[in-house]
Design a protein around this nucleic acid. Structure first.
Lengths: 151, 151
DNA sequence: TACGATTAGATCGTACACAAACTGATGGTG
DNA sequence: CACCATCAGTTTGTGTACGATCTAATCGTA
């Protein structure tokens, strides 16, 4: 296996790809920030709510698998969402190790306000839907490549 | 202007570009982590070093513009890199407000070890270079769209 | 030239993200 | 049944991010 040709300055190219990913991620989260502010949610909290709007109740482990986050990150985050009244945290009766996370009525109601967000983001970005779909496909490739290796 | 068609569930997690972006960013940074560990650098610190290997000395503001980071993030980060002996932080004589950041010999020497990283990352990802270039193009689009709007 | 506005960084408070160590609960095996 | 490995989640410590506020230096202009 020969070294792939990364050009005369491999560090410059590297700067472009890994760096573009970090910057793009922060830039897009930055677009969500003012849109999420009226809902009182941070972007990670919004992602947790999205996961719960899809399925509730579910365990912390299950949420972590969906969001690719470990429990050390989710634990305090879920406590905050509980404090806001969006969800409840209960130990499962069947298995006391498992923490069952379930939306409250307030948490479910918040979904109505959230429905406007994807449209607002797309409009704010001013990008073609096709471009966004290309990006999504490319990102899915990377995620699979990055995660698939460790398995 | 009509609402763009985002499908029947605009909140579907797996269609959210923002989610893919966050996960991909974390996944790729995770690939760098074990590669950067022997250099004693975190990924953000590595990005700062990349910027300095391209040009040094330069001001904090200049670094911030390059990396899209504000001084609240850079200040402590640069202090750590200074503590490791990779750079010096000096007030500019011409304008006392400006902090001049400059690589030390140690910091410049670290570049040799870093040269292997881009190859290792590409190999670890196992993706085609063309795919990575597509990704980079798509990311550049988003960054421009996201940042350009706020201007 | 005095002075308010601007600028470059630093500091503080809050919220992720992740490694490592820890606590209980569960399950398999002798 | 006893015991140990495993598992779910929590806690702790470190390092980003970012808004808000602060300080000191500089600039613009009346």
């Amino acid at each position: 296996m020969t070294k792939p040709d990364l050009g005369e300055d491999p560090l410059a190219l590297d700067r472009q790809v890994c760096f573009a990913l970090s910057v793009a991620s922060r830039a897009v989260v930055g677009i969500y920030r003012p849109l999420l502010e009226p809902l009182g949610l941070t972007h990670p909290q919004y992602l947790v709510m999205l996961a719960l709007w899809e399925r509730s109740p579910r365990s912390v482990k299950d949420l972590g698998a969906s969001l690719q986050l470990d429990s050390a990150t989710l634990s305090p985050l879920l406590k905050r969402l509980e404090a806001y009244g969006h969800l409840t945290r209960t130990r499962s009766a069947a298995d006391e190790r498992v923490l069952t996370v379930e939306l409250t009525a307030t948490g479910r109601a918040l979904r109505e306000k959230a429905l406007a967000i994807p449209y607002a983001v797309v409009e704010r970005l001013g990008m073609e839907l096709a471009d966004l779909q290309d990006l999504h496909a490319a990102l899915t490739n990377v995620i699979e490549a990055a995660a698939g290796k460790s398995a």
